[in-house]
Design a binder for these strands. Structure first.
Length: 188
DNA sequence: TGCATGGCGCCGG
DNA sequence: ACCGGCGCCATGC
């Protein structure tokens, strides 16, 4: 997939966004999207670590979402459900990085190039983003990932091979990596 | 502006 | 193999 970035979107001038949630196979999942253009702003897997509201505050997302569901949101839920069920390895969802610095956006883009079922180290991601040596900051940037799963920050691990941190909890990170390992060879 | 803060990397014991 | 300590660098206050 080819992510299209809206580099100059001002978060203060955002249109009224749609927000919804559903209970996926593993966790409750929140998402915020916009219909035209068809972009997705936020995907958040709930966890014992952090609530959705805390996540919104921590990332300074300042969203103005209206609870809403339509055909588009049903499609989003289906896509995510397919991924979590091992039936999909490439998202058709187009993220819009309306928050984040230039550095963070580069890191998120670099992370999106990691194929399903594969991992990369924080150092490798920093290098791919064009900031060799900023691997420590790359970790922080991934902690600010607004679009979980679509930007597969769970595929970024430590150089040592250890799993590293994850905003949704390290157990969830391990679960997602195991899921991808299980299905990577089964899918075409 | 300077300084503390992080989803890290590396080396030595 | 497992730590602790130090170095690393973009951000935010």
């Amino acid at each position: 997939m080819n992510p299209v970035l809206k580099e100059n979107v001002d978060s203060k001038k955002l249109p009224v966004l749609n927000k919804a949630s559903f209970v996926s196979s593993i966790e409750k999942l929140y998402y915020i999207w916009f219909k035209k253009p068809q972009v997705i702003y936020i995907v958040f897997l709930s966890s014992s670590v952090e609530s959705f509201d805390d996540y919104i505050d921590r990332l300074r997302l300042g969203y103005s979402g209206l609870a809403f569901k339509d055909m588009r949101s049903v499609e989003i839920e289906c896509v995510i459900a397919d991924y979590l069920g091992g039936r999909l390895k490439s998202f058709s969802l187009e993220p819009c990085f309306f928050t984040g610095t230039a550095f963070e956006k580069k890191v998120w883009q670099a992370t999106m190039t990691i194929p399903y079922g594969r991992v990369a180290s924080y150092r490798e991601i920093a290098e791919k983003a064009g900031f060799p040596g900023a691997w420590r900051a790359a970790g922080t940037a991934l902690n600010h990932n607004p679009v979980m799963l679509v930007v597969p920050c769970h595929r970024v691990i430590k150089s040592s091979g250890r799993i590293g941190f994850f905003g949704g909890g390290e157990d969830l990170k391990e679960y997602l990596l195991d899921l991808e390992q299980k299905y990577v060879l089964c899918l075409k």
